[in-house]
Structure formats: C-alpha cells, structure tokens
C-alpha cells in the first residue's frame, strides 16, 4: 500500500460519493431522467424513426451526429497505430532490436490441430450470427457495432490459427483504405443524402419509412464493415 496513492484516491472518492448519493433515486419513475427528453423518444420514437429498438433510434437518428464521430474515434485509433514507428531499420524512429526480431521470422505459437479445425468450422456460423445481429438490429438488441466486434473476432480467431499475414491477405490492398473508412464515409454519404432529401444535415425523411429503413441499414452495414476491418487491422498491426 502506498499512502500517497491512497490519500489521492480518497480525495477523489469523497466528492464522487457526495455527488452520486445526492442524485435523484435512479429507480423512480418520476426521476428527471425519465421525465426529460427521453419521454418523446419513448412516445414517438417508433413512429418518427421506424426503429422499434429505441437505442438504435437514438444512435442512428436522434443522436446520429454523436455516432458519426464515434466511428471517427475508432478510425483515429487505427491512424494512430499506423502512424507509430515500425520495426524497420530504415525508420528513424524504429529500434534495431525490433528489426532483428522481425527478421527472425514469425514468432507465432503453433496451434493444436483441434483448435485450428474448430475455429475454421465455427467461422461461417459466427459470420451468420453477426449478419443476424446486423440486419435485425432495429427490432432486437444488437446492431452495427456488435456485428463489427463479431466480424473482428472471426478475423482474430482465424489470424491466431492461420497467422496474421494470411488473414490480412483476405482484404485486397486496393480496397483497404475504403473498407477502413467505410463507417465515416457511410455517415458522410447518408448525411449528404439526408441534406438533399430533408434540408437538414443527417436528416431522415420521417414520413417515408422505406427510405428511413434503407438509410439506417446502410449506416449499420457501414459501421459493421468499417468497424470490423479496423478492429481486425489493429490486431494484425500489433501481431506483426
């Protein structure tokens, strides 16, 4: 136990406790959180957005602008990892030790054939699960992000079995920049279409449910694709 750290933690804890115990009780139906802006989402969300899952409605329609920059944050993480020095000696920031390690060949631990078989067998089923989450996200829990994470999980599992470089080859080099940026680009496109249709940036035509649904689905696919590729790429970059 380090006394100074403990003191600091207590100094932070005290105001936080004071802050949270003085909030309105969280279960009560008359708490501000249940009488504020959420009332309208619950009352008119389905009719205005066509999404029965109101979390999706908030994410894509009411507060789509937040989600736009949320996917930009994941892209930032990827750009950050790509901008860091590599292990090559030609790189001024690179360390010689890492270069030697890279020249040494891959340091992948051999995987048991059973695991390898199971992973390859499971991959299509996991992909189906991800697609189900993706396309049912407006009525059931789940959506683009969850699908993205499962897609990435498939990539990572295959990567552990086959080696990251072989998995990286699954995505052609020419497509890579576009797939990585799929989520923000999808948002920008939908924002422009919404601007054209409704006169408001990222607007959804509230009276046309077919158009709304198509735009929402396009966003979800963009998020799933872009998010999945980025998470998988992060894995490949860290492995190699």
């Amino acid at each position: 136990m380090k006394p100074w750290s403990l003191l600091l933690v207590l100094l932070v804890a005290l105001p936080l406790v004071v802050g949270v115990v003085n909030l309105p009780p969280h279960d009560a139906p008359d708490a501000p959180i249940h009488t504020g802006v959420g009332v309208r989402y619950l009352a008119r969300g389905v009719e205005e957005t066509g999404n029965k899952n109101l979390v999706t409605a908030v994410l894509l329609n009411y507060r789509g602008f937040d989600t736009f920059f949320e996917v930009v944050v994941i892209f930032t993480a990827l750009a950050a990892v790509l901008a860091l020095p590599r292990g090559s000696a030609a790189d001024p920031g690179g360390a010689p030790a890492a270069a030697a390690k890279a020249a040494n060949g891959s340091d992948i631990v051999p995987v048991s054939p059973v695991v390898s078989y199971v992973v390859r067998l499971m991959a299509p089923f996991m992909a189906m699960f991800a697609l189900a989450m993706l396309f049912r996200g407006h009525v059931t829990p789940g959506g683009g992000f969850q699908a993205a994470a499962v897609f990435a999980a498939i990539f990572i599992a295959l990567g552990l079995v086959l080696g990251p470089t072989r998995v990286a080859e699954l995505v052609p080099d020419d497509w890579r920049p576009w797939l990585q940026g799929a989520a923000p680009l999808a948002f920008a496109l939908i924002a422009a279409i919404g601007w054209r249709l409704t006169g408001a940036f990222l607007g959804f035509p509230t009276d046309d449910h077919t158009a709304q649904e198509a735009m929402g689905l396009f966003l979800e696919v963009g998020i799933a694709l872009g998010g999945g590729v980025i998470l998988a790429r992060l894995f490949v970059e860290m492995e190699t």
């Binding site: 139906p29 959420g38 619950l42 029965k52 109101l54 944050v73 009525v139 992000f145």
Partner: peptide
C-alpha cells in the same frame, strides 16, 4: 427500450444506453 411484442411500459431510458455504447467504443 425495445418496443416489440412481449415488452411493456415502463421502459428504461434509451439515451444513457446510447451514451454507454459510444463510450465503450471510445
């Protein structure tokens, strides 16, 4: 807050959940 058959009011507020989804990704 998923308004399909089988659920009934009162519903939990959807906004904090959307906030947390964003937070997890960040």
């Amino acid at each position: 807050p998923i308004l399909v058959a089988g659920t009934a009011a009162p519903y939990a507020s959807p906004i904090p959940q959307a906030m947390v989804l964003t937070g997890i990704v960040v």
